[in-house]
Simulated scan of single mutants.
Amino acid sequence: MVDLTKIPENLPIPQDDGAVKHLVGTSLPSLSLPATNEELIDIGSFKDFLVIYCYPMTGQPDVPLPEGWDQIPGARGCTPQSCSFRDHYQELKALKAEVLGLSVQTTDYQKEMAERLHLPFLVVSDVDFKFQKALKLPTFLAGGMTLLKRVTIIAKDGKIVAVHYPIFPSDSDPAWVIDYLENHYQK
């Protein structure tokens, strides 16, 4: 059985392909997406800081990952990334940042993961690729599915101020966000 909470050694490291260079300075789209609390969340309506970590897909216990998953640079590590945001959530809240996870998986799939991992923040579903298309986020194919590449967006009052891409290892992402907020916005 694969331990989804651990990042295997010797994973291929994703390279910056320039696919998100256009994002800084862009406004978040005013889109309502279904969330794990069974409500629609308007992504563009958040005030202060919003951290959106976009990830390909979380695995489920006893369900095999797509064929070749560990050989796709940046694919593996969604569960450790989510757990790391969970573990740093209070630090992020203290920096006036709200966190949202986002993938193209269904809300029901995400609810199982959020409950199993005890996530204190919402996860939203972009199952129709509205957010992905609005921001032209990069994707890849695996197991017959189109999935988001891992990218983290920091927005202030609806405008994107920073983007973390590529992210490796995935569980280092919250530390990057905290460092960015502390060094750019704390007085």
Rank of each mutant, 00 (worst) to 15 (best):
L135N: 06
Y53P: 07
P56L: 13
G77Y: 08
Y109L: 09
L65N: 07
T58F: 02
H118E: 15
L65C: 06
L65P: 01
D70A: 13
P61V: 02
T79W: 10
S125R: 01
D70Q: 14
Q71G: 02
T106S: 11
V99T: 11
C78N: 10
P56G: 08
C78M: 09
L65T: 04
Q90N: 13
Q60I: 05
K130F: 06
V123L: 14
P80K: 06
Y89W: 13
L95Q: 07
V99F: 04
V99K: 00
H118S: 15
P138H: 09
A114S: 14
F85W: 01
R76I: 12
K96Q: 13
V104F: 01
K93E: 14
V127D: 03
A114F: 03
L137I: 09
A114R: 06
G59E: 04
E98F: 02
G101N: 03
L92C: 08
S125T: 02
P56I: 12
V104E: 04
D70H: 10
L92E: 08
P66D: 05
A94S: 15
T79Y: 04
T139S: 14
G101T: 12
W69N: 05
A134Y: 06
P120Q: 12
E112W: 00
L117E: 15
L95Y: 01
C83A: 09
G59H: 06
D126G: 02
S125I: 00
K136E: 15
V124P: 00
L100P: 01
K93Y: 09
Q132C: 14
M113K: 05
Y109M: 07
A75K: 03
Y55T: 02
P66V: 06
R116P: 00
Q81Y: 02
C78D: 11
L122G: 04
D126N: 04
E115V: 05
V99Q: 06
L95P: 03
D62K: 06
A134E: 12
A134T: 00
H88I: 11
Q90M: 13
K93I: 15
H118W: 00
Q71C: 09
V124D: 10
G68F: 05
Q90C: 03
A75S: 13
K93N: 08
Q105S: 07
A75C: 15
W69F: 14
S82V: 09
M57N: 09
V63N: 02
S82F: 05
M57Q: 13
M113Q: 05
K133C: 06
L95N: 03
P61T: 01
D87Q: 03
D87H: 08
V124G: 02
